[in-house]
Design a protein around this nucleic acid. Structure first.
Length: 511
RNA sequence: GGAGCGUUCGACUAAGGGUUAGGUCACCUCCCUUUCACGGAGGUAAUACGGGUUCGAAUCCCGUACGCUCUACCA
């Protein structure tokens, strides 16, 4: 008997992948890899009305960005394909037939309009034992009537026949024993009128055929678990059933309820992993990647939403997560998403990431800001100077643009109140001294030397260096921010420094 | 309405019968820095409520409240 761990993530290709989806993938992936098992991506595209072109590719791109690459999928291949449910239609029909033959399912001829009408008439209507006989199906109708309807090609579905009285008990790896009284579950549709299976049939059949050993999914599936367990019992036997775990939900930061795309738009943070361009509405929804998150950080904070290793450790690489992940330590309760904490994780990962690697990742942001970098080593040096103050890769632009071009505006209002004649004289002297250095053929000097000579000159002019540092900073970067003044001068070199000082002096004299 | 699941600082969480209920984010104060950050040191702040069981309960049991999910020919 093959006991190798096999898990799957089974999204439907209807749009961007949000936080909850990625976390489900992550926990599946971590569990599989922790146990040396395999991770399968299966596309659940059985609802043709909701199919969105490009969504499948988007899901695969997202998984790649996160570093959660499937072992088997529509693009990676594998021995249990096809991995797209729309291509497995015949298989589901076959199993639906088996259920019919065994008497565990029946035909239902009610139209959607019939059902809608019935729901209006009967409060809390359930298509189950209570109302089954009032409907049009192969249990309520005579055998002749059924054959007649079938012969005429009347549209129909196949429904599961839920037993009258039975307790369904199963063990959830996170929640322990969960019990349902089956009389409260209705006769779910298994095969739709278009011949496609619903999720309920497809998930059971595919998990069996793909030899899935552990099935993890969001908590929203818990109420329909009894249907799936019934199907396992009828079709394959409970001993073959995967072990279940229902993951807690990711909640809105404020109030309560499941996190949605709308919350992100309202509160100003991403919900999708990567940018999603909806081909139908033409809307673009921003993703964590494009917002400036590192995949390591994205994965890290997602893992910490509902799981921890029992210690105070919070920063985990993917390999460390694999090594310490334990599904039984996953929480039962939902966790509110906190964007501030997410950004903190990202900042920690930016600090840990090599400057050359960051330089590559920063390129799209530099392009978007129209910043031209002439020398790669220069960029790497600048990254080293400002990375500590960036929560997002995008923060790099406002933190460092002055290294690449003179600031567009100078906050002279912050200089003027304390400006005086002797400062004017000092800065003119400073410009002169730098000009002399340049005449000697020097383009720049080390920060420490720049600082020493600056202080010396200040003393000679009988001004405290501290009174001059802030104005100088503002002249160079435009405002009250940025790394050490002399490190900036060292980087932008003497000629640029002089140009910026002279420009600011002119602005000041105009006021 | 019904069914299921859940509930520790504002947020994420630790502590599976004995702790001044610990850590992180956020917030506040101070230090470092004559900028903004980073870093360092402190501070504010929690066991939903009510009953049991026990020498002892955040932890075990029972109620109550509140919240969430599901209740489609969507997943």
């Amino acid at each position: 008997m093959d006991s190798k761990v096999r898990v799957r993530f089974a999204p439907s290709p209807t749009g961007g992948l949000h936080l909850g989806g990625v976390r489900t993938v992550l926990f599946n992936y971590l569990f599989a890899k922790h146990h040396g098992g395999e991770f399968i991506l299966r596309i659940e595209d059985t609802d043709q009305s909701r199919f969105v072109p490009g969504a499948e590719k988007y899901i695969i791109d997202t998984l790649n960005w996160c570093g959660l690459t499937p072992d088997e999928s529509t693009v990676h291949g594998g021995a249990y394909g096809p991995y797209r449910q729309s291509e497995r239609k015949a298989t589901y029909t076959q199993y639906a037939q088996i259920l019919m033959e065994k008497g565990f399912a029946y035909y239902a001829f009610d139209t959607p309009e019939d059902l809608e009408e019935k729901r209006k008439q009967v409060p809390n209507f359930q298509y189950s034992r209570a109302h089954r006989m009032e409907m049009k199906n192969s249990i309520s109708l005579s055998e002749n009537e059924v054959t007649e309807l079938l012969k005429k090609g009347t549209p129909h579905v196949i429904r599961i026949k839920v037993p009258d009285e039975e307790d369904i008990v199963f063990t959830d790896m996170i929640r322990g024993e969960v019990r349902f009284d089956v009389s409260t579950v209705d006769d779910k549709v298994l095969l739709k009128a278009d011949g496609m299976p619903t999720y309920h049939l497809a998930v059971v059949v595919d998990d069996f055929l793909m030899k899935i050993t552990h099935a993890f999914r969001g908590e929203e599936w818990l109420p329909s678990a009894p249907v799936h367990i019934l199907l396992w019992k009828y079709l394959f036997g409970l001993d073959k059933m995967p072990k279940w775990a229902h993951l807690p939900l990711i909640l809105k930061p404020e109030g309560s309820g499941k996190l949605s795309k709308r919350d992100g738009e309202r509160l100003g943070f991403p919900v999708f992993a990567m940018d999603w361009n909806d081909p139908i509405t033409k809307e673009t929804t921003i993703g964590f990647k494009e917002k400036g998150f590192l995949p390591e950080a994205f994965i890290n904070f997602l893992a910490q939403l509902g799981w921890n290793d029992g210690t105070d450790k919070e920063i985990f690489s993917l390999d460390e997560l694999i090594a310490s992940f334990d599904i039984e330590r996953v929480h039962k309760g939902g966790a509110k998403f906190d964007y501030e904490k997410a950004k903190w994780f990202n900042q920690e990962w930016i600090k840990r990431t090599d400057n050359k690697v960051l330089a590559t990742l920063l390129q799209p942001f530099l392009d978007a800001a129209k910043i031209e970098v002439h020398e790669a080593p220069y960029l790497v040096k600048v990254i080293g100077l400002v990375k500590d103050r960036c929560h997002l890769l995008a923060d790099f632009i406002p933190q460092s643009h002055f290294f690449f071009a003179a600031p567009a505006t100078i906050d002279t209002a912050a200089i003027l109140p304390k400006w005086e004649e002797k400062k004017q004289v000092f800065f003119e002297a400073l410009v002169k001294s730098y000009a002399e250095k340049m005449k000697e053929g020097l383009k720049t000097l080390p920060a420490a030397i720049l600082e020493a000579s600056f202080k010396e000159l200040a003393t000679a002019h009988e001004i405290k260096p501290g009174d001059l540092l802030l104005p100088l900073r503002i002249m160079l970067v435009g405002g009250k921010f940025g790394p050490g003044v002399f490190e900036i001068i060292e980087s932008i070199e003497l000629s640029d420094t002089n140009a910026r000082i002279e420009h600011s002096l002119r602005l000041i004299s105009e006021k």
